[in-house]
Structures are given as C-alpha cells and as structure tokens.
Amino acid sequence: MNSKIKVEALWIIGVLIVLVVAAGINIYTTESPNFTVATKETASTPIPKNTTVVYVQGEQWAWLFTTYNSTGKHTTTDGVTLVVNHTYTFVVSSIKGSHQFAVIHDLYIPQFDVQAYAVPGQNNTITFTPIHTGTFIIECVEYCGYLHYEMRGYLTVVA
C-alpha cells in the first residue's frame, strides 16, 4: 500500500513539474515583444503608437484591407501588401456585406502566427512585424456561411 502511494506521488510530482515548466514557458513567451494576442480596442487599450494601422474588415465572404495615407484611402480585397520589418497594427472588425447580418470571422495568417476574431460591434487589434519577404496565405477560420472557404487571400511582404 505504501509503495503504491509513493509511486503515485512520484508520478504526480513529475507531471506537475512538466506542467509548471510548460505554464512558465507560456507566460514567458507572452512577454516577448514579438508576441501579441488579439485585444478588444477600448479607451484603456488604444492602438499602439508608431505602427501603421491597417483596417481589416471581414464581410461575407471577403477580407477588405484599408489603409489611409497622404493620397487618400486605399482598399484591397482578399490581399494586402506590407513592407518587411515594419510594424503594423491590424484593426479587425466585421461589416455587413450584401447579406443579412455582419457575422463573426477570424483572420488567420498562419506563417506569422497572427489570429484575431472579427466580431460585429467590436474592434480587435493585433500588432505584428513581418520579418520575411514573400507571399503568405490569409484565411478565415471561423465558419461564416456558404462560401466561407473562399474567404482567403494572399499577404505579400516586399522589401
């Protein structure tokens, strides 16, 4: 009986050590400057300074990327071109397209570890810096209706 408890305690301690280490890594990585998680935009969590703001709007079934500069408003559909090693803030929201409601979408750029829900009535911000040039994929990973799978495009990062 005693040996049983000993074996079990050893096992639980081992598991706990692994889990505490994993939880530590989890907290440690979130403090890295390269990491951001999608955050609801409120008065206390404004858009970070010194970043280029890209307004991302999901509608059924397309991603619209809008930037403002001195020449005015520029909108592209299902694709956006960014400059390498430059920090961008994506302000992700959902708009009513030609259908009945604005619905929930989820912007996902797998190669840059970027993911943010597009929620009607709320802006989510996520900051990231592309560090490689090339063409990468953009997807919607929250089911949003009939042609959900066509809500995808390419992200081009240029030097």
Binding site: G72, H74, T75, T76, G79, T81
Partner: peptide, 11 residues
C-alpha cells in the same frame, strides 16, 4: 472617381 491603383476590386 479616384481609382487606387493597387485595388483590384475597388468598390
């Protein structure tokens, strides 16, 4: 009309 050149599907 103001056409933005990088916009394939401008509305």
């Amino acid at each position: 009309c103001v056409h933005s050149n990088n916009n394939e599907f401008n509305k």
